[in-house]
Simulated assay, not measured.
Amino acid sequence: MRKEYELQTDVLATIVAAAPVTPKHTDLLTTFAARTDYRGARHVKTRDEFGERPARILDADDREIAPDYRAWIDAELDKHGGSARAVWTAHKDAGYRLTEIQPVLHYFVHDRGEAQENFVQIEVWEEQEFVERELFPREEHWGLPNVDELRRGAPGMLVEHIERRTLGTPRYRLEQVIDMQQFIAIGNAAYEARRRADGDRRWMETNSTTGEQRVVTARELTPGYDQVRWESRRFFEDWAASSPGRAGERACLRWAFNTSDYTDPKGVRYMSFVPQWGHTRKIAELKNTGKLDVYSLYGKLTQLDERVGYRFAWYFYGLHGNLVKSGQMERVLEAAEAGLIVLPEHDYRVLRAWHEAPYGF
């Protein structure tokens, strides 16, 4: 079922699929400009860490045996009583080959301006089909794939490998289109509803000295309970309030957002995202800074700003957590409050608020 903030349509999926894959996605961006509402779409990030997945089955002469591997293997297992060995016995001498898809995920953004979260994020797979191995091992000396391995298309390494060949040209496939302003509004409402419900939970508190008991709520036991804000909303608020937002930088052109939306069996909804930086230059993690004086540490953080192209970037990289650590952020705050380094007041306020109510991704 399509979520309230999703904007993809069958027509848009067809338009994306018809665009040829070209360097820097020039044809796809032209297609967005000419045939959709996303005339200002820009490419932000590519993620290429995904593994291959099974696609089709071919014979030794590249004739298609089945267009969908998973549907075929499910049918074969049903036909042979769920026995992996029986399926292997039936096809081990056929020389069938498994084609696979190598996927790469691209993030595009259509920025509508004004509020930092007022943009549309378009996620598009680029997929290249290839073949490099037979489907079944020819011998059983070293064991046979089990049912789970067959369903996953991962029968192990003991199959006949052939020289890897690409099949056809890469193609695009639309994954999802997210109205991020809607995502934030709905996610924040879900978060606040969950916080209210959790805050109203009642507990029995017992005085360890007198033995007196009283009923208290989680809200009463947690100072500042109602001031806690949703992390995903805070990211954009912090961006707007600090140097990048004040300088006109748009968060959606610097970051992509890996969103999540889950409703548990009790009907409680959890929405979030993990920001993914959009820089393409190699940037090393800040390691072994414990022995550095704070001036040297802050110098390394400002070097990160210079490499990615905007001030106070290190704070948002610290929220992400892979390149900058929370302890390094704390040291900068301590140094600023001691007068050892100077932060712009608006950045200091954001950093101070994070210290008082830490969050990250």
Score class of each variant (00 low, 15 high):
218 A>T: 14
209 T>C: 05
249 E>V: 06
236 F>E: 08
248 G>C: 07
203 W>E: 01
199 G>I: 09
177 V>F: 00
182 Q>S: 15
215 V>G: 02
178 I>K: 00
244 P>T: 05
181 Q>G: 14
266 K>C: 06
272 S>H: 05
207 N>S: 09
218 A>D: 08
218 A>P: 00
185 A>S: 13
212 E>Q: 13
173 R>C: 04
234 R>W: 00
259 T>A: 11
171 R>W: 05
173 R>S: 12
212 E>N: 08
225 Y>N: 10
260 S>P: 00
264 D>V: 09
250 R>F: 02
225 Y>E: 02
254 R>P: 00
180 M>I: 02
259 T>L: 05
260 S>Y: 14
185 A>Q: 12
249 E>F: 04
259 T>S: 07
186 I>V: 15
194 R>H: 10
249 E>M: 09
264 D>F: 02
204 M>V: 13
229 R>K: 13
205 E>L: 15
214 R>A: 05
209 T>D: 14
239 W>M: 07
250 R>C: 05
232 S>R: 00
180 M>V: 02
200 D>M: 09
269 R>S: 10
241 A>M: 10
245 G>H: 04
264 D>C: 04
186 I>H: 05
234 R>A: 05
256 A>F: 02
211 G>Y: 06
272 S>W: 02
272 S>T: 15
202 R>G: 02
237 E>S: 09
201 R>K: 10
195 R>K: 14
269 R>A: 09
185 A>C: 01
225 Y>C: 03
261 D>K: 08
180 M>E: 07
247 A>W: 01
194 R>I: 06
232 S>W: 04
234 R>E: 03
193 A>N: 10
241 A>E: 08
243 S>M: 04
207 N>Q: 03
244 P>L: 13
244 P>N: 04
259 T>W: 04
217 T>R: 03
198 D>W: 07
173 R>Y: 00
270 Y>N: 13
202 R>A: 12
189 A>Y: 03
271 M>L: 15
267 G>P: 10
267 G>F: 13
226 D>T: 14
270 Y>Q: 10
239 W>F: 08
273 F>Y: 14
273 F>V: 07
271 M>A: 11
211 G>F: 08
210 T>M: 09
240 A>D: 09
